[in-house]
């Protein structure tokens, strides 16, 4: 058993661009869930729309730098369309509608009907060359010490995506620390009270959904650029649920919680992969019980159990204030 390798694999995954993209998406989900109290279970749709908006624009002959704002604006529009019918309804209706809409959208994107635009199940590849052309690091070169290395391509992607994380966190911090953010938190606590005090609750929720949607799109675009690939089956509902795990793990309603959550989650998730691979190679009975594919599935079982335990025993997450979570609402 090579535990150093396990930690290395977890660590390299943790600092990678995928973690940064998840952190961005978690920050946006946190604005909606942690600060406004909105149960958006269709986060993955905003990511998908952002990524496809970008990829399709490039496919149609536009530049990547046009595609990115197109993707973001499409997601804002989706937030508006989704919010208008549902934000007046109770929280559970929003949850049901958002998950349903996200899945319906994925099915449509995947269908032969939309194929002229989306290329169906095969998706769109190789639309982000313009981004990698700007890479100042030689793509093939390797950076790091010993086996703790990343390629030049990854390094470039990491620098950009973690910069985006920083910017998004600063933006949310500015918003949340303002009177606007205070109204959002008031709505989370009791929307009728906010309404009785003259606050346009519907308008604020819509803003939360649209701003969150835009940031979600940014996350989807980062992932798509990193993979140079968009395919509909990357946007299954389970990605939304994993983002919830990340937000709750880090601490819903805290500025840095989602980022910490993403780092820890990715470290554990990929460290576990490496640990299982190492165990299967070195310990006979582990290999006998679980195939590598099954080990991946066991990991997802643990994600589910982890979410339940977190919610029951530490709902404030890692960054949250225990006192705050113990306050009696009634």
């Amino acid at each position: 058993m090579d535990f150093i390798a396990v930690i290395r694999d977890g660590f390299l995954a943790m600092i990678g661009p995928v973690t940064a993209a998840y952190a961005v998406s978690a920050v946006s989900l946190n604005l909606q869930f942690g600060y406004t109290g909105l149960l958006n279970f269709g986060q993955v749709a905003f990511m998908m729309v952002g990524a496809y908006g970008t990829a399709i624009t490039v496919e149609a002959g536009g530049s990547l730098w046009l595609g990115i704002p197109v993707g973001i604006l499409t997601a804002v529009l989706l937030g508006l369309l989704l919010g208008l019918p549902t934000l007046r309804l109770r929280a559970d209706y929003l949850a049901i509608t958002t998950i349903a809409l996200a899945e319906a959208l994925r099915l449509i994107v995947r269908s032969s009907w939309a194929e002229p635009l989306t290329n169906g199940v095969f998706g769109i590849q190789g639309f982000a060359d313009a981004f990698f052309d700007l890479n100042p690091f030689p793509g093939g070169a390797v950076y790091g010490v010993g086996t703790w290395t990343v390629t030049g391509r990854s390094l470039w992607m990491m620098i950009v995506s973690w910069t985006v994380v920083l910017l998004v966190v600063l933006l949310i911090r500015r918003l949340i620390k303002s009177p606007w953010g205070r109204v959002m938190r008031a709505i989370r606590e009791d929307e009728d009270a906010a309404r009785s005090l003259g606050k346009n609750v519907f308008g604020y929720k819509l803003q939360s959904l649209m701003i969150g949607g835009a940031i979600g799109a940014v996350s989807g675009i980062l992932l798509a650029i990193e993979q140079q690939n968009v395919t509909p089956d990357a946007y299954l509902p389970r990605l939304t649920f994993i983002l919830y795990v990340i937000v709750i793990l880090g601490g819903a309603g805290t500025i840095l919680g989602p980022v910490i959550g993403a780092l820890v989650f990715q470290f554990v998730f990929f460290g576990f992969d490496s640990l299982m691979a190492s165990a299967q190679a070195n310990i006979d009975w582990v290999g006998d019980i679980l195939s590598p594919a099954e080990a991946g599935q066991v990991k997802l079982i643990l994600v589910g159990v982890g979410l339940m335990l977190l919610m029951i025993f530490r709902p404030q997450g890692m960054m949250g204030d225990l006192n705050e979570s113990l306050i009696d609402d009634h």
Partner: peptide, 20 residues
């Protein structure tokens, strides 16, 4: 809302347990 999130965790755990 918290209970709903717990049910999502349960759904996840059961689904992949059945898969295994």
């Amino acid at each position: 809302v918290a209970m709903m999130v717990v049910s999502i965790g349960l759904s996840f755990a059961l689904r992949y347990l059945i898969l295994v």
